[in-house]
Amino acid sequence: MARQFTKFQQKAIKNFYDNKEAIGIQRLGELVTDLYLAEGKARATKWKQAAGALEKLGVKAPEIDKIVKNDDPTALAKKLEQLMAEQE
């Protein structure tokens, strides 16, 4: 049975999908900051989250693997800058 959404809910859902890429880029920016500060097990978790965020943004798997393997937040920050430039 199909779920009926109110007009407000429909608009909220539409806005989410319209801004999905911007939301992903913002999340990736937060992860870059977290990676600069994280250590040990928390750092590994943040890298997994960053890889998932990059995948959702359409970055190819070999490029994601290279960034994660190098464990370099600066490389991730450069990729973030590139993604932001492409969005504009």
Rank of each mutant, 00 (worst) to 15 (best):
M1E: 14
M1Y: 12
R3T: 12
R3P: 04
Q4V: 13
Q4D: 10
K7L: 11
K7M: 09
F8D: 14
F8S: 13
Q9N: 10
Q10G: 10
Q10D: 10
Q10Y: 04
K11N: 10
K11W: 08
A12V: 13
A12E: 13
A12S: 10
A12D: 09
A12H: 07
K14W: 05
N15A: 13
F16L: 15
Y17A: 03
D18Q: 15
D18P: 01
N19V: 07
N19Q: 13
K20I: 14
K20T: 09
K20V: 13
A22H: 06
G24Y: 08
G24A: 10
G24M: 08
G24L: 11
Q26E: 14
R27G: 03
R27M: 08
R27I: 06
R27E: 14
R27Q: 13
L28R: 01
L28I: 07
L28V: 06
G29N: 06
G29A: 04
G29F: 02
E30N: 09
E30T: 05
E30F: 03
L31I: 06
L31Q: 04
L31C: 00
V32D: 00
T33D: 06
T33H: 04
T33N: 05
T33G: 06
D34I: 01
D34K: 04
L35R: 01
Y36L: 03
Y36E: 06
Y36H: 08
L37D: 07
L37Y: 04
L37K: 07
A38C: 05
A38H: 01
A38M: 03
E39L: 06
E39I: 07
E39K: 13
E39W: 04
K41I: 07
A42G: 05
R43Q: 14
R43D: 05
R43K: 15
T45E: 11
K46I: 01
W47D: 00
W47V: 01
W47K: 01
K48Y: 08
Q49V: 02
Q49H: 07
A51K: 02
A51I: 02
G52E: 12
A53Y: 00
A53S: 11
L54V: 03
L54I: 04
E55P: 04
E55S: 15
K56E: 15
K56C: 08
K56P: 01
L57H: 06
G58S: 10
V59D: 03
V59M: 11
V59S: 04
V59F: 05
K60V: 11
K60W: 04
K60H: 12
A61V: 12
A61C: 08
A61D: 14
P62E: 08
E63W: 05
E63K: 10
E63V: 09
I64E: 00
D65F: 02
I67Q: 00
I67S: 00
V68W: 01
K69S: 10
N70P: 00
N70S: 15
N70I: 05
D71H: 09
T74G: 13
T74H: 13
T74D: 14
T74A: 15
A75P: 02
L76C: 05
A77Y: 09
A77C: 08
K78E: 11
K78Q: 12
K78C: 04
K79L: 09
L80V: 04
E81N: 14
Q82A: 12
L83I: 07
L83F: 05
L83P: 02
M84S: 09
M84K: 12
A85V: 05
E86H: 07
E86Y: 05
E86A: 10
Q87Y: 10
Q87K: 15
E88A: 13
E88D: 11
E88R: 11
E88Y: 06
